[in-house]
Design a protein around this nucleic acid. Sequence first.
DNA 1: ACACTATAGGTAGCAACGCTACGCAACATG
DNA 2: CATGTTGCGTAGCGTTGCTACCTATAGTGT
Lengths: 113, 113
Amino acid sequence: MRAEVLKGHLDGLLLAALEAGPRHGYAVRESLRELTDGAFDLPTGTIYPALHRLERAGLISGEWSSPEQGRRRRVYRLTARGRRALGEERGGWTAFAAAMSAVLGAEPWPTTR
Amino acid sequence: MRAEVLKGHLDGLLLAALEAGPRHGYAVRESLRELTDGAFDLPTGTIYPALHRLERAGLISGEWSSPEQGRRRRVYRLTARGRRALGEERGGWTAFAAAMSAVLGAEPWPTTR
DNA sequence: ACACTATAGGTAGCAACGCTACGCAACATG
DNA sequence: CATGTTGCGTAGCGTTGCTACCTATAGTGT
């Protein structure tokens, strides 16, 4: 999978991974890898800056967990705005996928559902 | 539709538009707009550099048509390598779309086929 | 004891790509 | 004869994900 195809779609993926509940960055990464059977195996240099961007944008909020213990984890959860944004991402994806498939033709959707 | 979502997917679109037969750049642009009901209304500053890139890569070949007439048009056609590349683009799109939908869940494919 | 892997977070710099904003020209239409 | 459409082109920009690297703790193996 070429690298650039993900551009513009990552935010939706991260938001969706957090929809099921609060998670820290490393767990988000694992969720994506498992949900996609390894297709989205994103480097941490992709995950962490993206989470910071989403937090700055107010779509997720993070806080450090268990500071007394050694292992520091930053746990993120969707904000209300993030939940709205996720809805828009889903709509945008559907429109984009429909347009792509209209042009590419030929079995746009996986036939094995 | 945000701009970045197209990144990495444009080549496949252009190749697909040329699959039906040779076309000049402006016609490719119109094909994409019509096939997608206006969803992909790409600026010429996107189309032309991308076609040049594909030509340099040997996936399409272009030649000027009707030089004696005033209006100059550069007509592109798929090369053999371009046709192969289009097949790979289709496969890549299917894999990408499947992974995206696995994460986004919830009605990944348009229900109105 | 020591090495190694997995977990967990981070950043600087880069490359790629599509877009914006232009410019140029021929042809059609009113 | 002014405007709009067709048609091609490029320079420069902003965004984004990736590469490559760093730090640190916990667990596992030898």
